[in-house]
Simulated scan of single mutants.
Amino acid sequence: MHHRWLLLFACFWVLFMLMVASKFITLTMKDPEGYGIKQGPLTVLPETEKMTVTETKKLQIEVQPTTTPLKDDSYTALIHKERMELLSYVCHNESLRNLSRNAISKFVLDRIFVSDKHRILFCQTPKVGNTQWKKVLIVLNGAFSSIEEIPENVVHDHEKNGLPRLSSYSAQDVNERLNSYFKFFIVRDPFERLISAFKDKFIHNPRFEPWYKHNIAPVLIRKYRKNRRMSRGGLQFQDFVRYLGDPNHRFLDLQFGDHIIHWVTFVELCAPCEINYNVIGHHETLEDDAPYILKEAGIEHLVSYPTIPPGITKYNRSKVEHYFSKVSKRDIKHLYTRFKGDFELFGYRKPTFLF
């Protein structure tokens, strides 16, 4: 009998100890927050790579691709303020000095049209809708009473359109105007602008300017066509890109003269780090930028920017991919190296999808 009680007591004791042990194990398996999941060792994730100040600012104001125009005036003003802040930052970036700085030479002054009556300077940057801005200035200068009256052949005839160039003034008058007049110009995605220049001058040539096809194209084909046996068929976009990305392109630039204005960088055309521009519009947001420029210049009650056809200013990635599809990665990288200053200064994304 005594042994039976001892056996029962031993069984109860073992059962009790098992219950205590089970409870202890359950408690230790719970995580500190009480979710009943065992907490394993912590894994420290690497910090996200920090963006440079330039990249951060570019993310704030990127215009490519643009889908809908901005409608709110205050937001448009903020966008322009951030664009100018980015420009100032990049201009002071010593690592980009060779790509962003340019002397105010006669070549630059030749690009700037003057309206003394309304104290406006406009720097011409071809292939971004400059013809329409010329019409605006022609009306402001009084040569014609409305944009609709201006014949197309007169717009580009600088002896008849009534648009003096800043280079025609004395040094003192140039400095006075640069320091006191309202100054602006328009930019566009650099690579898409080059496509537009190539199509306009070497493919369609709507204004019949034969020197592009007959004088410039043969020179580029002889120097940059890889397969010399395929010299027929005119200039190819690949040839054009190799020329533009060639570090020694300036030798040919001198030979081609002012015709190069259609494809040189915005830096070379307008010296944005040396001239304190008031507004830099973007082709991709021209629906909003045009009225903003007119308002800032104080002429919105005198003239209107011509109607912009729907979709014409929108960035076309498919077109860019199509034209660069036959260009080697090496040539694209060389081209980007030359135009990097334009991408950085004006907040355009590096077209990594091409590399």
Rank of each mutant, 00 (worst) to 15 (best):
S95R: 14
H282W: 00
P65D: 15
C91V: 01
G281I: 00
D173K: 09
T67R: 09
P41I: 14
G36K: 09
A217Y: 10
F353P: 09
R165D: 05
G281H: 00
Y75W: 05
R207I: 13
V90N: 01
K38D: 05
R165C: 06
I104Y: 07
Y35G: 08
W263Y: 13
K213V: 10
N130C: 11
P46I: 10
F346V: 08
I147H: 11
H259A: 10
Y315S: 05
F198A: 07
K50S: 15
C11D: 03
P190Q: 06
V128W: 03
R330V: 01
D258W: 10
P309D: 01
K223N: 12
T352A: 11
I120C: 01
D253T: 03
H214T: 15
K223E: 12
V327N: 08
K226F: 10
F12G: 07
T76F: 10
S167V: 14
V90R: 00
G341M: 10
Y224R: 08
P32C: 09
R349S: 13
G142L: 00
F240Q: 10
P69M: 11
H334Q: 14
S88C: 02
S328W: 01
E296C: 08
K329L: 08
R338M: 11
L294K: 05
W263L: 02
K199R: 13
L286T: 03
I37L: 13
M1S: 04
W5E: 11
W211P: 01
E62R: 14
E49R: 15
L294S: 07
T76I: 15
K314G: 00
S318V: 06
L27C: 12
I203Y: 05
F24A: 14
V187S: 04
G40C: 15
A103F: 13
R229G: 11
S168I: 07
L109Y: 02
A77H: 08
D253W: 02
S145A: 12
K81E: 06
D116R: 05
R119L: 02
P164L: 10
E296F: 03
L45R: 13
E321R: 06
